[in-house]
Amino acid sequence: MPVWLEIAIRVAGVFVAFLTLPLIVGQTEHKVMAHMQGRLGPMYAGRFHGWAQLIADGVKFVQKEEVVPGAADKSVFRLAPAVALVPYLVALLVIPLGPGDLVAQPLDMGLFLVLAVVGVGIVAVLMAGWASANKYTLLGALRAAAQLLAYELPFVLAAASVAMAAGTLSLTGIVEAWRPWWLLWQLPALFVFFTAGLAEIRRPPFDAPIADSELVFGYLTEYTGLRFALFLLAEYVGIVVISALTTVLFLGGWKGPFASDTLGWLWTLVKVGAVAFVIIWLRVAFPRLRVDQLQKFCWLGLVPIALLQLILTAVVKVGF
């Protein structure tokens, strides 16, 4: 197979995952939330249990009028959704799906790349919030920036703990070095990474930046139509990326009780789905954190736990 064809196939594969997985997560969220709240959720679109609801939503979004506020900084306003989406697309490129070469682009420092590009998402939020020329959007953007800057620290520290344990920054290498007892050894890091990841993608209970009871819809208030849909897509791709990272770093990626070599990709997808389910579940189960509670939880809770985990990892790594 010529090189360019292989690259094209890999990129196309990532693009398909980029377009389908978030929709599956979104549909699951509709149905899971509905059943947890004693409702049925979408039942009509596509006949069978409303499976085509999000496609119908997409068609609706495309038809809507594109409104740009008169006082807005128009080019920044228009650019923001793209800046929000691209980092996650890049992150998906290096996440390994299965053993061998089942990854779009194996990199020596895949972990570092993912952490770096996920951080770029903040710029998009600030752009959207500021360019909308609306005080609610600006407040939402500032809340988001404060939250993301704070949670970036435990997020990176928890990932560093796993990298130390595995002795590599390559995501494939981390999965290969992973052993089941790491579930216990890296449990605090798992908790910190998952929680900080939730805050990074601004999912409930960390959705103070878009708190609908205080800020209308935060930094997304002025967006309509396709651009709004792109921001929503970014949120659900964010869920996929955080679930996939948690799976790869802490849950052993493609390793399962049996058939890890042949059905590895299925194990990865199952684990990603399970983590995404927990993310949806948390949205239903927890009330939104206030802004000050949010900062306190990060600096007095997650950061110390992450630092202790680093010490624990170093002690076990050097001592045994």
Binding site: M109, F112, L113, L115, A116, V117, G119, V120, I122, V123, L126, W130, A145, L148, L149, E152, V156
Partner: peptide, 16 residues
């Protein structure tokens, strides 16, 4: 990637 993580993701964001 350090450049992206530190300067784009943190320093410029703090300035903004």
């Amino acid at each position: 990637w350090v450049q992206v993580l530190i300067y784009v993701g943190a320093v410029v964001v703090l300035m903004l």
